[in-house]
């Protein structure tokens, strides 16, 4: 193959590749209806976390989540996956108080999700009912969504997870990102998220879940009741997880 030939062939190959690549970018704006889930239309799922009812040392929600959704635990903080996690916070300024507080952190299911904005393959997207989900069969594992999520609520499967306690929910291969999806598979069966059930079963009832569009639901009553706060809603992400007692 002489130089002319080489250049012509490389040129043709690159022209084809680049054309194929830029075309979907230009046309993908018209692709809005692909993920529509008409069954859930009219719903806007949200959660209120009442920290005043959350119990110290209790891990019921975290355990239930891990079991229901086969969330990886490797006993190494670098690679463990958390869909819902606990942290203890303390005021920086001692004059404000010394009291430590236990908080729960999870995917906020933002109405303005930066993760979905940056996903190059639309594997992360917001469903019509407002839940932000990851399609594990499409995710290429670029981890840009983890960079974009200001709440650090997204986790990558760095390692194979051998545990598979719930055979009704799929395992994930290593190499894909995941995060809380409000147990969308349970919602689709008319059930509630595992963490909410677990919290109620231990008698705490700190997690209140429901349809924010339904003005009479407990969740929208609490979320709009004046005591509820969202984590850093000044970031403009519009979370659908509200906190009482934060």
């Amino acid at each position: 193959m002489d130089r002319r030939d080489f250049l012509r062939k490389t040129g043709t190959a690159l022209a084809g590749a680049s054309g194929a690549l830029s075309l979907p970018v230009l046309t993908s704006c018209a692709d809005e209806t692909v993920h529509a889930d008409s069954v859930l239309e009219g719903k806007r799922w949200g959660m209120v976390i009442d920290l005043t009812r959350c119990r110290d040392g209790c891990t019921a929600c975290m355990d239930a989540c891990r079991k229901t959704n086969n969330v990886a635990f490797h006993d190494d903080a670098r690679w463990d996956v958390h869909w819902i996690r606990k942290a203890t916070i303390k005021p920086k300024d001692e004059s404000v108080g010394h009291e430590e507080k236990s908080v729960l952190l999870m995917c906020n299911h933002c109405d303005n999700p930066p993760c979905a904005q940056v996903c190059p393959v639309q594997a992360t997207y917001k469903r019509e009912d407002g839940i932000v989900v990851v399609d594990h069969h499409r995710c290429i594992g670029c981890r840009y969504c983890m960079i974009a999520c200001p709440y650090n609520a997204r986790f990558f499967n760095f390692k194979h997870n051998p545990d598979w306690p719930n055979k009704e929910y799929p395992q994930r291969s290593h190499g894909v990102v995941e995060s809380c999806n409000f147990c969308a598979h349970l919602l689709d069966q008319g059930k509630r998220p595992a963490c909410v059930e677990a919290c109620e079963s231990v008698g705490a009832g700190a997690l209140i879940f429901g349809n924010l569009n339904d003005r009479n639901s407990e969740v929208s009553r609490l979320a709009t009741g004046g005591f509820a706060k969202r984590i850093r809603d000044d970031w403009g992400t519009k979370p659908k997880v509200y906190y009482i007692g934060l």
């Binding site: 194929a20 690549l21 979907p24 970018v25 230009l26 993908s28 704006c29 904005q117 940056v118 996903c119 190059p120 393959v121 639309q122 594997a123 499409r138 290429i140 670029c142 840009y144």
Partner: peptide
């Protein structure tokens, strides 16, 4: 996937 599901708002697309 990046070819079939490109996302116009993603800097990675």
């Amino acid at each position: 996937k990046p070819f079939t599901y490109a996302n116009a708002t993603s800097m990675f697309s």
